[in-house]
């Protein structure tokens, strides 16, 4: 198990270094960063000065190592727009995004698995057909449209839930979160549902096909032949098997939840880093964009690592090959 983790850590490191190189090329080699840093009417003199000041006159490899050094220290410069450290800005907003993404993930699992199990175990039941039809809808409706409809229905027409912001937050270990107030939950609900919709559909489909396949296996028949209750067979024998693909896919999809949250955060004015990114792109705030990209890369890599470990914990066959290799 230890060898397995070390191997995966090494792989993660390779991915991060590759990303650093890509980002470096994107921002230092393909474009000239100086043009983004000087006012439009700057003289040649001023431009050269900025170039020297920031070391852009140095050979590319020296610039790269400086960039690498900065990245490793978490130093991405100051945001042009906000005038604050870019990384601090991103990290400040990250908890709100993570909170939203986690809430969506939990919703996807809590709603998706039971519905998927039902549809998979009783494929001919009318309710199963309804579930599948709904999941197709969930796949095909655009996130922003659903978001607007949710606001229309629950905030404007029914007035049950607030449409924007994070609501009352509490600070826990220095992180602001809306998970500990009722008002926070109310604010979280609509954006989380909006963000979860696609993943609920995905989990339903994964669970259904997994349950259908597993329920036809000999080991399920053998479990029945032992006299086990249906609850035990479904809850242990079938679920444990289908959890493997679900955990894997959902883990990998968590990254896309963070990415998609850009749309949801914008619609619901959720103060996360997605909303920040959109503003940064609009104003060409380079340090902020670079910081966001690196933070997201790190996030993806970490998630993949966790998924790998979870996967091997769930599937004994993987663990064996992992430790032997």
């Amino acid at each position: 198990m230890l060898a397995f983790i070390i191997r995966r850590l090494a792989q993660a490191l390779v991915v991060i270094v590759a990303m650093v190189v890509l980002v470096f090329f994107g921002t230092h080699v393909i474009g000239d960063p100086v043009w983004m840093m000087v006012p439009g009417d700057a003289t040649q003199e001023q431009i050269e000065q900025v170039r020297r000041e920031f070391g852009f006159d140095q050979p590319a490899y020296i610039q790269f190592f400086r960039f690498l050094g900065d990245v490793m220290q978490g130093e991405f410069g100051r945001s042009y727009v906000h005038g604050e450290s870019a990384i601090t800005l991103i990290l400040e907003r990250m908890p709100a995004t993570m909170e939203l993404a986690f809430a969506a993930l939990v919703l996807a699992v809590v709603i998706g698995i039971p519905l998927g199990l039902f549809a998979g175990l009783k494929p001919d039941h009318p309710l199963s057909r309804g579930i599948m039809a709904a999941s197709i809808l969930g796949f095909s409706l655009p996130t922003f449209w659903v978001g607007l409809m949710l606001i229309m229905l629950f905030s404007v027409m029914l007035g049950w839930l607030p449409a924007t912001g994070q609501g009352t937050t509490v600070e826990i270990f220095g992180i602001r979160t809306s998970l500990f107030t009722l008002d926070g939950w109310k604010h979280l609900f609509l954006p989380a549902v909006n963000l979860a919709l696609l993943k609920v559909s995905l989990v339903i489909r994964l669970t259904r096909s997994g349950a259908r396949e597993a329920s036809l296996q000999d080991y399920v028949k053998f479990a029945r032949a032992k006299g086990l209750s249906p609850a035990r067979i479904v809850g242990v024998h079938i679920l444990k098997n289908i959890l493997i693909p679900i955990v894997t896919v959902l883990g990998l999809e968590f990254g896309s939840l963070v990415a998609f949250s850009v749309v949801t955060e914008t619609i619901f004015a959720w103060p996360g880093m997605g909303k920040l990114l959109l503003e940064a792109i609009q104003r060409l705030d380079r340090p902020l964009i670079v910081a966001y990209v690196m933070v997201v890369v790190l996030l993806f890599v970490t998630i993949n690592l966790i998924v790998d470990i979870l996967y091997s914990a769930l599937d004994p066959r993987v663990r064996l090959t992992g430790s032997q290799a």
């Binding site: 296996q217 000999d218 080991y219 053998f222 479990a223 242990v236 444990k240 098997n241 493997i244």
Partner: peptide, 12 residues
């Protein structure tokens, strides 16, 4: 059952 490779649940 006939096929011992299939009768035991692989993840338990």
């Amino acid at each position: 059952f006939q096929d011992p490779m299939m009768t035991l649940n692989p993840v338990l």
